Amino acid sequence: MRIAFIVLALVGSMMATIQSAAASEDVVRGDLHATTEDGVRIFVRELRPRSWLDGAEPIILLHGARVPGLASFDLPVTGGSFAADLAQRSGRLVYVMDARGYGGSDRAAAFEQPPEANPPQSRAYLVVRDIAAVVSIAKERSGSRTVCLLGWATGGMWVGYYASLHPEDVGHLVTLNALYGGSAQHSQFGPGSPVSDPAHPDRLSPTIGAYARYDAASLLPGWDKSIPVADKDQWRDPVVAAAYQRAALESDPESQKSEPPAFRAPMGAIEDSFYQASGRRLFDASTITGHILVVRSERDFWSRPEDVQAFAHDAVHARSIRIVALPEATHFVHLDRPERGRGQLLDALQGFLVEP
């Protein structure tokens, strides 16, 4: 196994902007559903380049804890579809999925009840079933025996978990700003954090219910705080930010029933993230056998350098490991402007995918 450490400088690129604008025109979209082994329907969007590599490993993109797939990866504005740019640049089929409880996928009956009536929904052990269903479809439609999984934030934890259980399915694995139990200290999710139980700081608060509601305004403060300039528009396109908020609300048919409008997000991701942030690993990376790319933004508020180090340390059977650091980049790097890390992330992925 070889480990490569790469630091990508944030250099402006006009070409990246031009490619992003053209990508949507060169990609054909289609919406599908996959059914899990326990009968849950999972929403999937396929992005097919007009000229694609038949038999090449397809790429599956998985969102994070709050905002589902399309809002995260396929916004209908220039610079807002990381999925389209990735499909166009790689020449591969790209699939954007929603985990159960999110977006166009089935929601459990608990979502029709008050959140406090049920425990956190869509835990990681269930989401790996969702990934399995999408992997099956992606393999069949692409003609490839393996897939590339890319997960952002909690999505990185989920795809890593899946790859540890089904290493034969995953030729390439990408985690973007993901937790991995590398430390017992985390300001937002660890012991003693706002989501911990005051009586038992190493446990999740019992007040965390099945789901939470998020309005549009709640999606920007963390992003704003991590951008190191006063004018946030210099870092991210305001059109992309507005589309992100709009798509998040549109992902839930119940969002307009709240005032202000708010979408529901399962809290299972928060429970699992709490354990990871507390140093309790949900899976062991030693069983992953494909190529691994671990990407972390310098200004990420979710993952920690210790998570990157721990993952690389444990992944002893990976064919190769690349660790990419994106200086000054934010947690939302794939939605930021190309010169703020998005272009460098696409470059890193393009280089990684050619690993045989």
Score class of each variant (00 low, 15 high):
290 G>T: 03
99 A>Y: 10
329 A>R: 04
86 L>G: 03
234 Q>L: 12
355 E>A: 13
285 A>Y: 01
48 R>V: 10
207 T>V: 13
328 E>W: 13
132 A>T: 04
26 D>S: 07
274 F>G: 02
25 E>P: 01
195 V>S: 01
139 K>W: 03
73 F>R: 02
230 A>V: 10
34 A>T: 03
54 D>Y: 14
259 E>L: 12
268 G>T: 11
81 S>Y: 06
313 H>T: 14
186 H>Q: 12
48 R>A: 07
339 E>F: 10
74 D>P: 09
309 Q>T: 14
227 I>Q: 06
176 L>A: 11
314 D>Q: 11
268 G>R: 03
132 A>F: 01
142 S>F: 02
303 S>A: 14
344 Q>V: 11
252 D>S: 07
11 V>I: 13
155 G>A: 02
309 Q>C: 09
114 P>G: 03
89 R>W: 08
87 A>W: 04
347 D>P: 11
336 D>C: 01
266 P>C: 06
58 P>R: 02
59 I>L: 12
130 D>R: 03
151 G>W: 10
143 G>H: 01
150 L>P: 09
133 A>H: 05
37 E>H: 13
328 E>M: 13
80 G>S: 07
61 L>R: 10
234 Q>F: 09
340 R>A: 00
202 D>V: 09
172 H>D: 09
84 A>W: 08
19 Q>D: 15
46 E>M: 10
293 L>K: 10
189 F>D: 14
113 Q>M: 09
312 A>Y: 04
313 H>S: 13
7 V>P: 11
356 P>E: 14
300 D>Y: 00
231 D>Q: 05
211 Y>Q: 02
145 R>L: 11
134 V>I: 04
243 A>N: 08
135 V>E: 00
42 I>Y: 06
14 M>F: 09
90 S>K: 03
114 P>H: 02
186 H>K: 12
64 G>D: 11
47 L>A: 01
313 H>F: 12
151 G>S: 12
200 H>E: 04
82 F>S: 06
167 P>H: 08
46 E>T: 09
25 E>A: 13
22 A>K: 07
252 D>M: 08
48 R>E: 10
97 M>R: 08
